[in-house]
């Protein structure tokens, strides 16, 4: 079995466990509203091999999202956001295409595509994911400012954890 696939399968379960048992505890807010949450699990979608079919990416996003929702007790919420993120991954990849193009066997990692590229890639998709997630959570744009605040704090925290884990492990695929 391909190393990228093996790594992805491992990441699927690892990120799920870390998210629902560890990072779920990391919350911060005021006035009874949680403004900061850490979402590391989109990293699984981010690091899928470049040649993964788009449909498969979307489907895997749905499955992981539901798995997260199962223990977050919010059916559909994380799944909806992650399906959107998974669908948008191809768009972001298209925008961030390096001058020399992608090597089809690569995975979109820091090691293969560079520090700056990976930061842009992850920052954009995490932002998209958080925005969709908090919009779905509020389910209305009446409290748009609150949504933006949540996105800002959670984005900072999530990016911290994401980059920290990438720098610590630095996977090639």
């Amino acid at each position: 079995m391909n190393k990228a696939i093996t790594n992805s399968i491992i990441r699927f379960f690892l990120l799920w466990v870390v998210q629902v048992f560890v990072l779920r505890q990391v919350i911060w807010g005021w006035d009874g509203i949680v403004y900061l949450q850490v979402f590391l699990y989109p990293l699984f979608i981010l690091l899928l091999p470049l040649n993964t079919p788009r449909s498969l990416t979307v489907f895997l996003g749905f499955v992981l999202g539901l798995a997260i929702d199962w223990l977050y007790e919010s059916p559909g919420l994380h799944a909806g956001a992650l399906v959107f993120t998974a669908y948008m991954r191809a768009v972001v990849l298209g925008i961030l295409t390096p001058r020399e193009g992608y090597s089809i066997k690569d995975s979109p990692t820091k090691k293969s595509l560079g520090q700056t590229w990976f930061f842009q890639y992850a920052a954009t998709l995490i932002l998209i994911h958080l925005f969709v997630y908090f919009s779905l959570e509020a389910f209305t744009f009446v409290y748009f400012k609150s949504i933006l605040l949540k996105v800002l704090f959670s984005w900072l925290a999530s990016m911290f954890f994401l980059l920290a884990s990438i720098y610590a492990i630095n996977p090639e695929a």
């Binding site: 449909s55 059916p75 559909g76 919420l77 669908y87 779905l136 959570e137 389910f139």
Partner: peptide, 25 residues
């Protein structure tokens, strides 16, 4: 456009789940 249809279908499923099983939404 399979990916798009799958995406749309799954989002619909998610919205259905959200509305059905989440009280605030």
């Amino acid at each position: 456009q399979g990916a798009f249809f799958l995406f749309a279908a799954l989002e619909v499923v998610c919205l259905y789940l959200i509305i059905t099983y989440n009280t605030p939404q």
